[in-house]
């Protein structure tokens, strides 16, 4: 196995855009240091880190899904609807199949089936959005605006809008398991998702195919890429990730409902864009997206430390960071571009 030598000898398959990730990391460090400096006794408490690790996985996973669709030049506004519909299907199944107070041996197989149902539902929702976009050629933003309404609507119809609660306790116990009493399971799931998708983008053929399609769909077709298949697959992955997020939300809330996390959609788009995903498609890395997720989490947990500071300042800082990163990128890269310019 001579993996080391290949890594250096092979030309990079990715266009270097690591500077953006570096800048984001600096921002993350700055926000982190600022919060530490302001309230060291609270911010640095292990429980605070534990709290943060339990919060971001659900929207973080959805942000990764949205990022993938944005790399293809599209958009998935239906992530939240998909997450809730999947969770509701799992919850309905559990409520129907697991009597209250059932022993764990009886509940566990049903929980596994419920999780599978939810994941299948996520895949199906994604496949439907993907079909509308790839086959019917509806602009992604419109198609997923429609499917978001549709999925939420179905969730409301099958629940009459009521929360599906009183789920078997075992489910949320599993969902909230903490390894070594510190690392929550959702965080582990998030890491797994980020690593798998990150590797899929950088190390497997899926990545270049996605980037190429996002750069120039017509050329991708002439190059023999199966555009339709790639698009449908991408939206299916996004739907699948959404259903994982839905399952995590269901575990944390011990219930499922048609309108949980409605404000996550715009937040996820913001994260993707700040993380360096080009809204026109073709570029974006999971590393950048992950750092953007962490920036948001540190900011919002940090602001919750201050009794008298409104949570709305998070939006101000968030918008500010986004624009500052853009301007810095412009100034630094712009200079490089001008120097390289030739007539």
């Amino acid at each position: 196995m001579s993996d080391n030598s290949t890594a250096t000898a092979a030309p990079r398959i990715a266009v270097p855009r690591d500077r953006n990730i570096l800048r984001l990391s600096i921002f993350l460090a700055a926000v982190f240091l600022l919060m530490t400096a302001l309230r060291p006794s609270i911010f640095l408490m292990p429980s605070n880190f534990n709290s943060m690790m339990r919060q971001f996985p659900e929207y973080g996973i959805m942000a990764i899904g949205i990022s993938l669709t944005m790399i293809t030049g599209g958009m998935d506004l239906a992530v939240v609807g998909t997450a809730n519909l999947s969770a509701i299907i799992a919850a309905k199944f559990l409520l129907a199949e697991v009597p209250r107070g059932a022993p764990p041996e009886q509940a566990l197989p049903m929980i596994i089936v419920a999780v599978l149902l939810a994941l299948i539902c996520g895949l199906a929702c994604g496949a439907f959005s993907g079909f509308l976009i790839a086959r019917m050629r509806i602009p992604a933003i419109l198609a997923t605006l429609g499917t978001q309404q549709l999925f939420t609507g179905i969730a409301i119809v099958i629940t009459n809008g009521r929360p599906q609660s009183r789920l078997p306790l075992l489910y949320s116990q599993i969902g909230n398991t903490e390894l070594w009493d510190f690392i929550p399971l959702p965080f582990v799931i998030f890491c797994a998702v980020a690593i798998i998708i990150g590797l899929a983008l950088s190390k497997t053929r899926f990545g270049p195919k996605l980037y190429m399609l996002g750069t120039n769909a017509k050329a991708a077709r002439f190059a023999g890429l199966n555009n339709e298949g790639i698009l449908v697959r991408t939206y299916m992955i996004s739907g699948f990730l959404s259903s994982i997020a839905g399952l995590i939300m269901m575990a944390r809330a011990n219930s499922a409902k048609a309108d949980y996390g409605a404000s996550y959609t715009m937040q996820c788009i913001l994260i993707a864009v700040l993380g360096g995903v080009d809204p026109n498609g073709g570029f974006g890395k999971i590393g950048g997206v992950t750092i953007a997720i962490l920036i948001l989490q540190v900011l919002s947990s940090g602001l919750n430390m201050f009794e008298n500071v409104s949570n709305f300042y998070r939006d101000v800082i968030w918008g500010g960071v986004l624009i500052i990163v853009l301007v810095i990128n412009l100034v630094v890269d712009g200079k490089a571009r001008r120097n390289g310019a030739r007539a």
Binding site: S47, S51, M52, A253, Y260, A262, Y264, S301
Partner: peptide, 21 residues
């Protein structure tokens, strides 16, 4: 100290942070 929008998920996050702090 409330969430910025009426959203159960966001409210849970605020409580989570308060517990941690």
């Amino acid at each position: 100290k409330g969430p910025a929008k009426t959203d159960a998920a966001m409210q849970a996050q605020v409580i989570q942070d308060l517990i941690a702090q």
